[in-house]
């Protein structure tokens, strides 16, 4: 299982955000995408998810371009964007159920509720998401992510809106997922406590200068 980019370039309007990006993540690794605001972190994640179309180059899943891998890739990948994708008029349980249905999966309430409880939403299972706080909605989205069973998580700022306990829980989830043989690609502005997790850092920006810990896995060009 591996996700790699080849000569990837991204352009937003007139600006070339990055080009010639080559990076590779394997099972049991966490790719931590870093860079200041407006450097193209979100654009990079969207390219990885397949929502965006690269200006040049391609993203490959197990050596096959994600455009051709199609369903296989989408089955194995879950993407948590800035927006939570949580419908205001549905309860957390319904939200998670709909999300699973959209992935073509069927999950029962009995499976969903423990996950929501684990995410600290025990008190609001029957409330419409409208009345939840931003952080609580983020937790609903994270519960969907957990239940998706995807091997690759692409997370855009998963910690925004979460309280201290929430951050710790997410750290726990990440550790569990990666150590269980999963893969994570994520961005964050907060510092993470992830002992025992193999982290691949990637500095993103017009000129790719980075501090690479795994030279064999991560090649980069400016």
């Amino acid at each position: 299982m591996q996700l790699s980019t080849h000569d990837l370039a991204c352009q937003r309007g007139d600006r070339r955000l990055f080009s010639g990006l080559e990076v590779c993540v394997r099972a049991g690794q966490l790719l931590l995408v870093q860079g200041g605001n407006g450097r193209g972190k979100t654009s990079f994640l969207r390219l990885l998810s397949g929502l965006g179309e690269p200006e040049a180059g391609e993203v490959r899943w197990n050596g096959v371009s994600i455009a051709s891998a199609g369903e296989d890739y989408q089955q194995a990948m879950a993407y948590l964007a800035h927006a939570n994708g949580v419908k205001d008029d549905l309860t957390p349980v319904e939200n998670v159920q709909v999300q699973a249905g959209l992935r073509g999966q069927r999950v029962s309430c009995a499976e969903i509720e423990p996950v929501l409880v684990r995410m600290g939403l025990a008190a609001c299972l029957d409330l419409p998401a409208r009345v939840l706080s931003f952080g609580q909605r983020r937790r609903v989205a994270l519960a969907s992510l957990l239940l998706s069973g995807a091997a690759l998580w692409i997370l855009d700022e998963p910690l925004t809106g979460l309280d201290v306990r929430g951050v710790a829980e997410v750290e726990g989830l990440l550790r569990e997922h990666v150590q269980g043989g999963g893969m994570v690609v994520m961005t964050t502005h907060q510092s993470l406590q992830l002992q025992g997790v193999e982290i691949v850092p990637l500095q993103i920006g017009p000129v790719m200068l980075g501090q690479m810990s795994l030279p064999t896995d991560v090649a980069e060009r400016g």
Binding site: Q75, A83, R103
Partner: peptide, 14 residues
């Protein structure tokens, strides 16, 4: 589109 669920639907394997 606004609440992000459209993106989730587009990413569905279907």
């Amino acid at each position: 589109h606004r609440d992000g669920s459209l993106e989730q639907m587009l990413l569905s394997p279907q």
